[in-house]
């Protein structure tokens, strides 16, 4: 092939997102008539998940398909664009914002100084909240020991009265099983179910209410800038198609797993009432304001999201 690249993802090889991403690379190969061949590698294959930005920027990797929350420590704007907790009721709202509400332009303003270019945004879908205790209302979060990783999710749970615990992903399983934590911000329903979390965390929330991570498809800016226009167009349209493919593939899996879980008398799948979701979103909004103050870019993200949501009567 004319162009041979290696892109790293933020999933293990067994997760369904990984297959969707491989399909993306295949379709680019087909559309470009074999001129672009992209190798998709699982998380940690070349560098750690939170080091891929540096690796793409240095040209060690040519690109990555990842959750930008990993880079919140470089600039909090990554956390805001990558997972604005409580903002989105549906992944399609988020994709609309990124593609037609100015989100992708802002993301490129953030990431281009690193020598990285965003080809397009995707999303996984609302993550399910796994819990050992029923969380039907925002009040039920009081005192709940919930695992919360990097990004804004920690502060929002704290504001909602929970007792967030900063625990790495590899400790979630045993931590939940033995009761070190009561609940976790982890991943989508079907994957939680595959890993066996619901056998002891019997009160999952579906659809989730708290977290919708972005899938940022980006590559080294130098390489991108040197591409002919036809290949750029191919990359962009393949990425937009992948965004919808990802959302609907995961949704289909979730629905199947949810109906199996509903049939299981031991598991109670909780669908939080709309007024409670609104209450959680109001708490989250206070935290967005705090983050808006952090730098010029986080301020811009805040303005842009709020005006998008207000225009569509979602605030």
């Amino acid at each position: 092939a004319e162009y041979e690249w290696t892109f790293q993802t933020s999933e293990t090889a067994g997760e369904p997102q990984f297959e969707v991403k491989k399909a993306w690379a295949d379709s680019i190969k087909t559309m470009s008539d074999g001129r672009i061949a992209i190798e998709i590698l699982p998380v940690n294959a070349v560098v750690q998940a939170n080091q891929t930005l540096d690796a793409v920027s240095a040209g060690i990797l040519q690109g990555h398909l990842t959750d930008p929350s990993y880079f919140s420590g470089q600039n909090p704007a990554f956390g805001m664009l990558g997972n604005l907790v409580g903002a989105w009721g549906d992944p399609l709202e988020y994709l609309e914002y990124m593609q037609h509400g100015g989100g992708e332009e802002l993301y490129n303003e953030l990431v281009e100084p690193y020598g990285v270019h965003l080809i397009g945004a995707g999303a996984t879908g609302l993550e399910s909240f796994v819990s050992k205790k029923p969380v039907r209302t925002v009040d039920d979060l009081k005192g709940l020991k919930v695992r919360a990783p990097e990004g804004m999710v920690y502060n929002i749970f704290q504001k909602a009265g929970a007792a967030p615990v900063n625990l790495p992903g590899s400790e979630v399983y045993t931590g939940l099983e033995k009761g070190v934590i009561d609940a976790a911000d982890y991943t989508v329903f079907a994957t939680n179910d595959d890993q066996g979390l619901h056998s002891f965390a019997k009160y999952p929330s579906y659809p989730g209410f708290h977290s919708l991570p972005m899938v940022a498809v980006s590559m080294n800016k130098g390489i991108w800038d040197g591409l002919p226009a036809d290949l750029k167009a191919i990359m962009e349209s393949a990425t937009d198609a992948m965004a919808y493919d990802m959302v609907f593939t995961l949704k289909a899996r979730d629905i199947k797993a949810v109906s199996a879980a509903r049939a299981n008398p031991d598991i109670e799948v909780i669908d939080m009432a709309p007024e409670e979701r609104a209450k959680f979103r109001r708490i989250a909004q206070q935290e967005w304001k705090v983050w808006a103050e952090k730098n010029e870019l986080t301020g811009k993200v805040y303005e842009s999201v709020v005006s998008f949501l207000t225009d569509r009567n979602l605030m």
Binding site: G14, Q195, G196, S199
Partner: peptide, 19 residues
Amino acid sequence: PPSIVLIIYGLIANQSIAD
């Protein structure tokens, strides 16, 4: 159990860690 090898296997293979 608890075994980090099996946890990592479960995560990579997307298998039930309990099993």
